[in-house]
Design a protein around this nucleic acid. Structure first.
Lengths: 383, 383
DNA sequence: ATATTATATAAAATCGTTTCAATAAACGCA
DNA sequence: TGCGTTTATTGAAACGATTTTATATAATAT
């Protein structure tokens, strides 16, 4: 955890590298024509067998019988020669490579960034490394990448299902792969694939409740693309709250984002749909957008139309994507605990890995994390 | 290559293994206690030797002597059994794993996103996969990751030096690793490490020229942290243009961002430094920020102080980071060709890899890409 | 008819580890 | 003294491919 934050390096400076004598680093080169140092080189140099070297260096169970004296001799030799075990050989025996595949549907979607960090961070703690792939929202690419990852025998798979309309075949491909698999952002029914999602229904409900509490009654909605699971979930949460609170949802104030793939035109779409909304001349004092990008587009459209946000119209988004806090006005939104989601996914994956290593059965787990309402400048009590 | 796509397994169910008759699919399971299918299984099944199988499946030179009949037999068998060559065994011989290490100093920095995409995309074209690491701007973490990547024998290293103050030791570590290494975003003098940079001097000059052309003469500057190479470069470009154009750079209108590591407080810092600037009561009609995040902070501060952007003060940034186009007003800036930078880095790395595969010498190359002025709403002619 | 070459396949060596099974010395103790 | 452990170490097998070398037949050339 705690990491050195100081060391404000003086940097640049770049001295010309001089004689640089001394230091045990040198001798690493003097092997006979071969440049790679194997365990046998260490064995020879230390005067013990390869077996013993292996045992010592891996601190295997048998190491308990090896006297400290021998151990240090071997370690010294290894260090002197700059020995690094060949990981291919190692993996060949152990069938493990401490690598997991991370499949993203679109890295440029800001939604991914923090999740990726969450994944990376947890993986790091476990001394695992991610192989990251980006499907560019393209099926074929996704499948090709899946194949590549399986070929490489990654120990687990984490799929970041932002946005893409995952269809059944994709799932089948995933299920066929017999390694622990976790999907982030997409709830599913599979018995063999785990999932980490956020409580979108609750989050959307809370957002609406917030607007309601601020006194808003005429509320417009820019819903997500119909084909998107998230859109359904969020809308359900909205309906539920509306019903409970006796709030009327005016059909005239509801528009849908079109079904298309590119998340980065989210802003454009939000802008257009909001214009559409304004065109209907049905007044509203608050607007709830499918996500932050849409909300941003909405704010633009409103501003352009002379409607001040938040003075004349509150706007709330969903996700709490990185730039949301930076906009003017900063965006009220529903935060998805992205880093936590990444971390959770990794935990599940790791459990799967160790289960399989110990030949235990490991059932898929579906975990749903709570979302969090983040109140900023874009929402305000009705005047 | 081509792998069986059908066999939509009914899975789960996990029947106690009984007679298990019928279907050709079955036999894959009935190996003697072992679940993985090796080349020898394919050999046995097809009635040829492992050697022949290997030759056929890899389409090795010798494959030219093997009759089509045999080939198809083997391919059929491989497909039937769902054979995937064990990549560890493969790499163990060939010493290649089609993997490159990508080291980022901070993924949450929006500057990275498109570069990462550029890297990923080019890598994909070459059938390589990236192992992505994120140093969190921490030295120790960087070094640990470097070690992990080298252990895994990545074939090349691409370092995305966004922001971090790379010091001499870090470079030494990198140089010691004897694999092709490319740094993005940091020019350097090394004879063994390649680099891809953008023409920051020219870009900064062009930005200032733009403001100048709009009629601005009293221009404020929020310079980057002194320790940062980019800051120096950009300032140099500014000085050069100022000199050429006979523009006076008022010391009172120049402030520096503090030397610290976190790029995400860029906005905060920009805000604070701009406040400082305003406090000096020396009027200015345009402000040039070190980067987009700083510019955004500046806009906030100006707006807060009642100075309208761009009506009363133009603001220009640097980088063209993803959200910059989305802000209100959208930000004029100097675009770094990020995807191209990533692609270029990969190309260099690939050249290095093939050079080394063929035992050729490969000198480091330093490539500088042109930047591009992007004019949006935040700059405007003086009234 | 015989030497040569092209075709077709296989046995064995190799890559660098880890692990199993074996051996040998030292130790405890009846 | 002898016998079973414990301690200390090792040779050889295994991991799953590729590559080198070898072998056998068929086709062609001389």
């Amino acid at each position: 955890m705690a990491v050195p934050k100081k060391q404000l390096v003086k940097n640049q400076e770049m001295v010309i590298i001089g004689p640089e004598d001394g230091f045990p680093v040198a001798s690493a080169k003097s092997r006979k024509a071969k440049n790679t140092i194997t365990i046998r080189d260490v064995a020879e140099d230390s005067g013990f067998s390869a077996t013993t070297v292996s045992i010592v260096l891996n601190n295997a169970p048998l190491a308990r019988y090896i006297p400290p004296h021998t151990k240090t001799r071997i370690q010294k030799a290894a260090k002197k020669l700059g020995y690094h075990p060949n990981i291919f050989a190692k993996s060949l025996r152990s069938k493990r490579n401490h690598t997991v595949g991370v499949m993203v549907f679109d890295v440029t979607d800001p939604y991914c960034t923090l999740i990726i960090r969450g994944i990376e961070n947890s993986l790091y703690q476990a001394s695992y490394l991610p192989m990251m792939t980006d499907a560019h929202n393209d099926r074929g690419r996704f499948e090709r990448y899946l194949e590549m990852l399986l070929e490489r025998r990654v120990e687990a798979l984490i799929v970041l299902a932002n946005w893409l309309f995952i269809d059944i075949n994709l799932l089948a491909d995933l299920e066929k792969s017999e390694i622990p698999t976790v999907i982030i952002g997409r709830e599913l029914e599979s018995k063999s694939i785990s999932s980490v999602t956020v409580d979108e229904e609750g989050g959307a409900g809370a957002a609406l409740a917030h607007l309601h509490a601020l006194g808003h009654r005429k509320i417009a909605f820019v819903r997500g693309p119909k084909a998107l699971m998230s859109a359904k979930k969020r809308w359900k949460g909205i309906q539920k709250f509306a019903q409970d609170a006796g709030l009327d949802l005016d059909q005239k104030l509801i528009v849908d984002l079109p079904d298309q793939l590119n998340p980065n035109v989210g802003v454009e779409d939000g802008y257009r749909m909001t214009e559409e909304l304004l065109k209907r001349k049905k007044g509203f004092t608050a607007l709830m957008a499918f996500d932050d990008m849409t909300a941003l587009g909405a704010i633009r459209a409103l501003t352009k139309a002379g409607v001040k946000v938040p003075e004349q119209c509150s706007v709330i988004g969903f996700d709490d994507v990185m730039p949301s806090a930076l906009f003017v006005p900063s965006l009220s939104t529903v935060r998805q605990p992205m880093e936590a989601m990444g971390a959770t996914a990794v935990n599940i994956a790791m459990d799967g890995i160790s289960a399989r290593a110990e030949n235990r059965e490991f059932g898929a787990v579906q975990r749903k994390l709570p979302s969090e309402l983040v109140l900023r400048e874009s929402t305000r009590a009705i005047t």
